[in-house]
Design a protein around this nucleic acid. Structure first.
Length: 1002
RNA sequence: GGCCGCGUGGUGGAAUGGUAUACACAAGGGACUUAAAAUCCCUCGCCCCGUACGGGGCUUGCGGGUUCGAAUCCCGCCGCGGCUACCA
């Protein structure tokens, strides 16, 4: 009767844990603390998918392990529930997002609890709960109340901002405007993605290739008033403090690249003919001030404010048209699709400060208005982009950096020069197409320019003693514009006046000083990172706790007023019509009663933008520490106890945005004294993606053949069937015949197949639902939560991308069944132990295996940087394989084994723990320990190699000394045979543990 | 284009300088059974010699190198995946 039946066991223990609050965590304890955090999910309508429990299982195993090792473990879960998908789903179904969100949360909670995770459910948070977003708004107000003191490198209260005297004398409004301009949360006009067809503003991630992701409608860029957060003020600290955290190096690198720090200089170029009363200089940013002598033109971004002022009458029409075109293009069109550089001459000229040369000023959209100063000096000889532009518009190219020999030798010019001596006379004839069978070696492609250069080369050929390198060097100095390659790295300066001969790094130092002395430039650091666009023109998000002041006529004055803490939370108005307005203005504008406010006799309009989805997830790890506190976001004593997060596990898709935004908020809270650690997440692990089951696909050519009615008849039939069922055509594994390392279709062996595992997606029909794995459906039985958990961990290393396999789940299910039968009599009517379970002393081998298993599982769970769950499970399988073969299975080895299994498969472990006669839950039982002496076998196997090739294996006592081992090895018959007639030169026995013998013979 | 990662049996993977293929899946054979499922036992990288017992050789994408010894370290190439993309 009691066969292994997860359906009976699992819900019972889940109920037990909830009712007994087994995993409820006290706020404080004397035990060492450990805060283990999962990236909380967005509760979508489609429910959990098997990717979610991968990370959750890993953290759950570690939490259960650490609890048993006597640690004070915090392991909470919650919901990131504001955001676009809920709103769109609501619009489609006509159900209010608040309602669908709650339904989705209930479903997610049910599914997560069904998997037996040891979360402290008393600490559950929901970002859409006013009790939660009250504090999201409160943190926004802190950010709003903060300015960044660049000297102290710290965010400080706005009240401490020094006000310049001339501002103070201009009155209170001027002071307020000055303060507003310095806050970490500020307003600005920014281009947004406006989609007229959908009547809504789209986030950048909803725009693909200049079209809306949903529907493929065109998207325009329109300026709109936006809230921004001054994350750029923290760029340096966000970069530097990566040194404080233990994260995977690739994630750190992605953050570094995203921040994109570059050191360089700003340089001022005077206008050659400045229009009266206008600024006389154009400021550029460059990382290569050492190439100033090679600057042959300048480029302004089309949006640069000076463009209109400097453009000459003759060029005005062309420039205006170009600006209009550029404005219409999306970022994507400007970059990726633009294979050819575009631009227009303004008619104006600037003066290069280092040599007073007059150079033309162009506008081009390859220069971004949002980076640096929005203007560049172009050095076409040493920059790929400038080079392409100069070629396009026939602008001067002037070399000023001599590349190393190695580079010169790889140029096509050098390749051509080398041949000058091979043809008599070293003439241009050498570059004509070679005659058939000619031994003349010619580069495959030789541009007309190179051919022209060869004329010049042949004239100096004698002068440089037929040395192709010196000739190439000469040509590079004199006629760089004729080269096809661009050298952009460091080298030795030339054509640079008194700086000639300097290596690039030294030149950079000297020229910076030179520019500073003359007041025409200065060292400067720039970042790719832009300020964070923090507002969305949507309904389903946190409202901003901000009021816009109106004047007597009801017009906005441009001044804002923050709500006070006691006015929070500012709840979303309960609107029936939350659809986008059809104009760029946010839907909250339609809540007429809500937006009008009077305070102290003044009239105000509420801010109608809402916060982006990132806001709630930026600080949830703090709220878990004190989830019901209505007085503060988190009691500092609790924050002090728990922070920082000791382990944070989630997908790599959050490598940049979520993690960077959280770190930024945390640093502001740190500066303002609300948290005591500079970083929120001490250690981070990314779990790898889980793909759909491996499938076998016929080649596209074969399928196309079949579609046209040709090719394989079988394939044609299969194609018709797949098309009718509206699925992709693939072949099940049963139908695949492997041959010569390739796969063929059993039903038609002429059809070759390729194996492929794809991302799970509805469209491919390969999504695996945890409900199905655990509970099955009408046709199948389901394997239970323990099997799902175990398989997710057994598939491979946590961080690896790996394909799902239902057969693999079946495999671990069989393992758990075997564990069950190892302990429980599955043929008895009532729950009783198997007959082989006895209070006997274990034999030596069984005891050894138990201790080896304890050692292996413990060490695998402790492994750095990432625990090895898969090999820990394999060790437990080996233990089980051994013990199920034994006639006598001592209780004294079964109990510790059940404890080892419990973090991985907690339900079956609890049940077996009870069967073995223990009371209550095993969740806080001490973790088993191993005796190193007992892990060793009586004899060990030592491989013997001759010249690195395995010849035999010896059985020896584990404590044998090297000399005896060597003697034994040399005495072995097989070894003697392979040493026949050869001289033993050396015998190698590695010092650590006598693991092998290698006899070197000559 | 740039940067990063990966490449081991039919499949997922193990071994991170010391016995390559642990553990599992799939496949095949056998036992039990009226039968099936379940369970248990056996075989299972490739090639060669041998009737058999057994023996020998090769093998970690390809080519080279370092080392007594390389899946592991180094160089070059090929393939796959991810991120990123005019940031001056």
């Amino acid at each position: 009767m009691p066969t292994y039946n997860p359906k009976a066991i699992e819900p019972r223990w889940q109920r037990y844990w909830l009712e007994h609050k087994t995993f409820s965590t006290p706020d404080f304890s004397d035990k060492p603390k450990r805060y283990v955090l999962d990236m909380f999910p967005y509760p979508s309508g489609s429910g959990l998918h098997v990717g979610h429990p991968e990370g959750y299982t890993a953290t759950d195993i570690l939490c259960r392990f650490h609890r048993m090792r006597g640690q004070h473990v915090l392991h909470p879960m919650g919901w990131d529930a504001f955001g676009l998908p809920a709103e769109q789903y609501a619009i489609q179904t006509g159900t209010h997002p608040a309602e669908t969100t709650q339904n989705n949360i209930a479903n997610f909670r049910r599914q997560i609890q069904m998997l037996g995770f040891s979360y402290d459910w008393d600490r559950e948070v929901d970002t859409t709960d006013p009790g939660y977003y009250k504090w999201t708004q409160w943190i926004f107000l802190q950010i709003f109340d903060t300015w960044y003191d660049a000297d102290q490198k710290k965010g400080r209260p706005i009240a401490e901002l020094p006000i310049p005297p001339e501002v103070r004398t201009a009155g209170e409004d001027a002071v307020r405007r000055y303060q507003d301009s310095k806050r970490l949360a500020y307003q600005a006009e920014m281009a947004v993605n406006w989609c007229p067809a959908l009547g809504t503003v789209l986030a950048n991630e909803e725009v693909q290739d200049g079209k809306s992701e949903r529907g493929g409608h065109p998207v325009e860029r329109r300026p709109l008033r936006q809230w921004l957060l001054r994350i750029t003020a923290y760029a340096e600290r966000l970069l530097a403090d990566l040194a404080l955290v233990d994260w995977p190096e690739p994630i750190k690198k992605m953050q570094r690249d995203w921040i994109g720090r570059s050191e360089g200089a700003e340089v001022d170029f005077k206008l050659a003919n400045p229009p009266a009363s206008e600024s006389e200089t154009i400021r550029v940013f460059t990382t290569r001030p050492d190439t100033l002598f090679g600057a042959t033109y300048m480029v302004l971004a089309p949006e640069h404010p000076l463009v209109a002022k400097i453009t000459t009458t003759a060029q005005r029409d062309a420039v205006t048209k170009y600006q209009a075109d550029a404005a219409r293009k999306s970022d994507m069109e400007r970059t990726e699709l633009a294979k050819k550089k575009t631009g227009v001459f303004t008619g104006a000229f600037a003066i290069n400060p280092v040599n007073n040369q007059k150079i033309p000023i162009w506008i081009a959209d390859y220069v971004l208005s949002t980076y640096g100063t929005g203007a560049i000096m172009a050095v076409p000889a040493h920059d790929e982009r400038d080079f392409a532009f100069a070629r396009q518009f026939h602008l001067a190219i002037r070399t000023v950096v001599m590349p190393p020999t190695k580079w010169l030798e790889e140029t096509s010019v050098f390749a051509a020069c080398k041949n000058l001596d091979k043809e008599p006379g070293g003439s241009l004839e050498g570059v004509a197409p070679p005659a058939a069978g000619s031994s003349f070696e010619q580069p495959q492609t030789m541009s007309e320019r190179t051919i022209r250069l060869l004329g010049k080369a042949s004239r100096v050929w004698e002068k440089f003693h037929h040395d192709p390198l010196r000739v190439t060097e000469f040509l590079y100095r004199e006629s760089a514009d004729q080269f096809d390659e661009v050298y952009t790295d460091d080298g030795i300066a030339f054509n640079s006046g008194s700086f000639d001969g300097l290596p690039t790094p030294e030149f950079k130092q000297k020229i910076a000083a030179w520019l500073e002395e003359r007041g025409v430039g200065a060292r400067k650091i720039n970042y790719k990172l832009r300020d964070w666009l923090f507002s969305r023109q949507r309904y389903w998000g946190e409202p901003f706790p901000i009021l816009h002041e109106l004047d007597d006529k009801g017009q906005p004055t441009g001044l804002v007023r923050a709500l006070t803490a006691d006015e929070l939370p500012l709840t979303l108005p309960d609107m029936q019509d939350y659809r986008p307005s059809g104009r760029p203005e946010p839907p909250l504008g339609k809540a007429r009663d809500w937006i009008h406010v009077t305070r102290d006799g003044k009239r105000y309009l509420r801010e109608t933008n809402t916060m982006p989805q990132w806001a709630g997830s930026c600080w949830y790890y703090l709220r878990y520490l004190d989830p019901h506190n209505n007085e503060m976001l988190c009691d500092p004593a609790k924050a002090k106890h728990w922070l920082p997060v000791d382990l944070y596990v989630g997908g790599a898709e959050h490598a940049v945005l979520h993690l960077l935004y959280s770190r930024f908020w945390h640093k502001v809270l740190f500066d303002r004294g609300h948290v005591h650690t500079p970083e929120p997440f001490y250690k981070l692990i990314n779990q790898g993606m889980i793909l759909g089951e491996t499938r076998y696909y016929p080649s596209n050519d074969d399928v196309e053949d079949a579609m046209r009615g040709g090719g394989s008849k079988e394939l044609r039939t299969a194609y018709t069937v797949a098309k009718a069922a509206n699925t992709e055509l693939f072949v099940a594994e049963d139908d695949v015949a492997p041959r010569d390392g390739k796969y063929f279709w059993k039903r038609d062996p002429s059809v070759q197949l390729t194996a492929r595992a794809d991302k799970m997606s509805k469209a491919r029909g390969n999504v695996i639902n945890p409900d199905f794995v655990v509970n099955g459906d009408e046709k199948t039985n389901g394997y239970g939560a323990d099997s799902l958990r175990l398989f997710e961990m057994f598939m491979g290393p946590l961080e690896a991308v790996k394909p799902w396999s239902m057969a693999g789940v079946e495999g671990v299910y069989r393992f758990l069944s075997r564990v069950w039968r190892m302990i429980v009599d599955d043929r008895a009517e009532t729950m009783q132990l198997a007959a082989a379970v006895k209070d006997a002393e274990p034999d030596r081998e069984t005891l050894r295996l138990l201790h080896r298993t304890i050692q292996k599982v413990t060490e695998d769970l402790e492994a750095q940087p990432i625990p090895r769950f898969n090999t820990a499970i394999a060790a437990m399988m080996e233990f089980t394989n051994h013990l199920t073969r034994q006639e006598v299975r001592p209780r004294s080895v079964l109990s510790p084994f059940v404890l080892l299994l419990s973090p991985f498969a907690p339900h079956i472990a609890e049940e077996l723990w009870h069967a073995l006669g223990h009371k209550d839950t095993l969740a806080y039982e001490p973790w088993p320990t191993f005796d190193p002496a007992l892990t060793k076998a009586e004899e060990m196997e030592v491989p013997v190699q001759v010249n690195g090739k395995l010849r035999t294996r010896l059985m020896v006592p584990p404590d044998i000394d090297s000399a005896s081992l060597e003697k034994l090895a040399l005495a072995d018959e097989k070894v003697k045979a392979s040493l026949e007639g050869k001289q033993v030169r050396k015998v190698i026995i590695p010092p650590k543990g006598n693991k092998l013998v290698n006899i070197v013979v000559g």
